[in-house]
Amino acid sequence: MKRVTGIGGIFFKSKDPKKITEWYQKHLGLNTNPYGAGFEWYEAPDSSKKAQTQWTPFPETTKYFEPSKQDFMINYRVENLEALVEELKKEGVTIVDNIETYDYGKFVHILDGEGNKVELWEAVD
């Protein structure tokens, strides 16, 4: 079973998410949107299958990264999230919440070996 297939997103805390997003747009040319910026790419071996990596600044007061104490969180793209969660449970990995489903995919949060919150995403591209 495949586990992680790519980086789904990079999220970090910012004093002013709107301002930092504008900075990245102006100075580094990111094609921004209300959620940050998306980077499209194509999955191998099927080079016709489009995918996306999300870049998003969060308010520095966000509780979204808790229980981790870090100022960032990485989102990993996965296949078959339900099966992966069952395997991770068997391996003793801490599952933070229940799988949630949205029109753009399924999500769940886990803690890595150092207590960093990690987001797992089965995307609907």
Results as ranks from 00 to 15, higher is better:
residue 32 T to V: 15
residue 87 E to K: 12
residue 55 W to G: 03
residue 108 V to L: 02
residue 11 F to S: 02
residue 42 Y to E: 13
residue 125 D to G: 05
residue 13 K to Y: 08
residue 107 F to K: 06
residue 50 K to N: 08
residue 19 K to C: 03
residue 48 S to E: 15
residue 46 D to R: 05
residue 122 E to L: 06
residue 88 L to H: 03
residue 4 V to N: 01
residue 8 G to S: 05
residue 98 N to M: 03
residue 74 I to R: 04
residue 125 D to M: 00
residue 85 V to Y: 00
residue 115 G to R: 02
residue 11 F to C: 05
residue 39 F to V: 15
residue 14 S to I: 04
residue 99 I to Q: 01
residue 19 K to H: 05
residue 116 N to V: 03
residue 63 K to D: 09
residue 85 V to T: 04
residue 69 K to T: 05
residue 23 W to T: 15
residue 14 S to R: 09
residue 123 A to N: 01
residue 112 D to Q: 07
residue 24 Y to C: 05
residue 24 Y to G: 08
residue 37 A to M: 07
residue 70 Q to R: 13
residue 5 T to F: 03
residue 92 G to E: 14
residue 69 K to V: 00
residue 10 I to S: 03
residue 18 K to A: 15
residue 104 Y to W: 13
residue 11 F to N: 05
residue 16 D to N: 15
residue 87 E to G: 00
residue 72 F to E: 04
residue 32 T to Q: 07
residue 32 T to R: 11
residue 57 P to Y: 05
residue 18 K to R: 11
residue 118 V to D: 01
residue 124 V to L: 01
residue 37 A to N: 03
residue 15 K to L: 12
residue 59 P to Y: 03
residue 3 R to D: 06
residue 47 S to F: 13
residue 63 K to A: 13
residue 112 D to N: 11
residue 21 T to F: 08
residue 12 F to M: 12
residue 16 D to Q: 11
residue 8 G to Q: 04
residue 113 G to W: 00
residue 71 D to F: 06
residue 28 L to E: 06
residue 12 F to T: 13
residue 104 Y to A: 06
residue 62 T to I: 12
residue 91 E to C: 02
residue 39 F to N: 02
residue 71 D to R: 14
residue 78 V to R: 00
residue 38 G to E: 08
residue 35 Y to I: 15
residue 36 G to E: 01
residue 15 K to C: 08
